[in-house]
Simulated assay, not measured.
Amino acid sequence: MKLFLSVGHARLKNGAATSADGTRFGGVNEYEYNKNLLVPLVNHLIGGGHEVDAILCPEGVFTTSKEEREYKLPLANAKPYDLILELHLNAVDNPHVHGFEVLYKTEKGKRYARPVADCLSALFTPRGEQGLVKRDDLYMLNETKAPAILLETFFCTNIKDCFIGKNTDQVAACIAAGLNRAAGLSATQNSMESGGNMDKEEFIQYVGSIAEKDWKERKICIPSLVIAQAMKESGFGTSELAIKAKALFGIKKNGWKGKTYVKDAIEQNPDGSYRVDKNTEWRAYDSWEQSILDHNDYIARRKIGNQARPNWEKVIGCKDYKQAVENLQSAQYPYATDRAYGESLIKDYILPYGLDRFDKMDTSTEGYMVRIGPFVCLAEAETFAGHFLNAHVIKGE
């Protein structure tokens, strides 16, 4: 990817930094920390094959923070970057608040933000929606041509976060790993969604990764069912709806407030005959990921007529794909008018492609030992261990 990397804030002519300062809580200065993070992050990104333009506002030149904006935006918009990334740290007056946030505005920005958040969660506690926070009040998110994300990597006012963040090479490697993953997903998705060449397993892996993650987080639709439906309804991402409307599922408008795509619908009548419903409005999306997540929302929330509860509530959380398929079609209003739809999902997709492999969540409770120290004073060691979950002090020799 072509990346524009910026250190948030600046050091003004009077010597003051425009950033937050957590040193009064035993933490770090936001600007100084990110300035030190910049070099290892650039090195990791270049090592991952990315093209990187990194900037730091000239120190001792600006008199107000407004000049940062005037300096950065023309540079960020000067080239066709794939992603704009700016480094920040969070801060509050409460030193116990901790964790990270990846800020984004657009769905495309969220597509890059998600894998970065996944990787950062190995070091810090995610805040918001698995570490993702949508914002529409920041100029680096609003006024750049390329999609942008802002990293609030941790709280500079929290001693635990700052201790972990002290290893800037580790933090840089974590961020770079997320961007490497984002680059891989973006390249695959861009190729797929534009009708590019792909094999079936690539499609399965892409849809499966999103379906599996959503299953772990929200427990709505078992992944094998979601993947099978996407395969069947979109022809492995080659259908008109998949390419032109970014829709992997044939979900009609049905109260949808977003954009729509118009095409005829072929439906099966109760007597087994078929009909064509002209100029049907279908839900349209900005990405396949949005389509997958909305499909699951649709299953979880859709009420038809005077129903008091969701039509497919028996699908929600069902851990057996055979039962989930049965519940999908045996609801008061079946998901598909095609009588053979449910049987086809299992016989033509789930079984021959082994889609149930995505249903097998890791239930391991094995823990890991992280060794920090040594501390000369036992009281100091016990105090520091208190900042961590399930941590205890082991006396050394």
Rank of each mutant, 00 (worst) to 15 (best):
M1N: 11
H9P: 06
H9Q: 06
L12H: 03
D21I: 08
F25R: 02
V28S: 03
N34T: 07
L37D: 08
L38N: 01
P40M: 08
P40L: 00
I46M: 07
I46L: 14
D53G: 01
A54C: 10
A54Y: 05
C57P: 09
C57S: 14
E59Y: 05
T64Q: 14
E67L: 08
A76D: 11
K79D: 12
L83D: 11
E86C: 09
L89N: 15
A91H: 11
V92T: 15
D93K: 13
G99Y: 03
E101G: 04
V102S: 02
P115D: 04
D118W: 00
D118A: 09
D118Q: 09
T125F: 00
R127I: 10
E129Y: 11
D136L: 09
E143T: 01
A146T: 14
E152T: 08
F155Q: 00
I159H: 03
T168N: 05
Q170E: 10
R181T: 06
A183C: 12
A183G: 14
M192E: 07
G196I: 01
I204A: 10
I204M: 13
Q205T: 03
Q205W: 00
A211Y: 02
E212C: 01
K213D: 04
K213T: 08
D214P: 00
K216F: 05
K216W: 03
I220P: 01
I220C: 05
I220A: 04
S224L: 01
V226A: 10
M231D: 08
M231L: 15
A242W: 00
I243F: 08
A245E: 12
G250V: 05
K259C: 03
Y261L: 01
K263C: 13
T280S: 12
W282L: 00
Y285N: 06
S287P: 01
E289D: 08
Q290G: 13
D294W: 05
R302W: 03
G305D: 02
A308C: 09
A308Q: 15
W312N: 11
V315Y: 02
K319N: 13
Y321V: 07
V325G: 07
V325I: 15
E326V: 10
Q329P: 05
D338E: 14
R339E: 07
S344N: 15
K347E: 15
D348N: 15
P352R: 05
R357E: 11
R357Q: 12
M361F: 04
T363L: 06
T365I: 10
E366Y: 03
Y368E: 14
R371E: 14
I372N: 11
F375T: 13
A385S: 02
F388Q: 10
N390M: 10
H392M: 07
K395Y: 12
E397A: 15
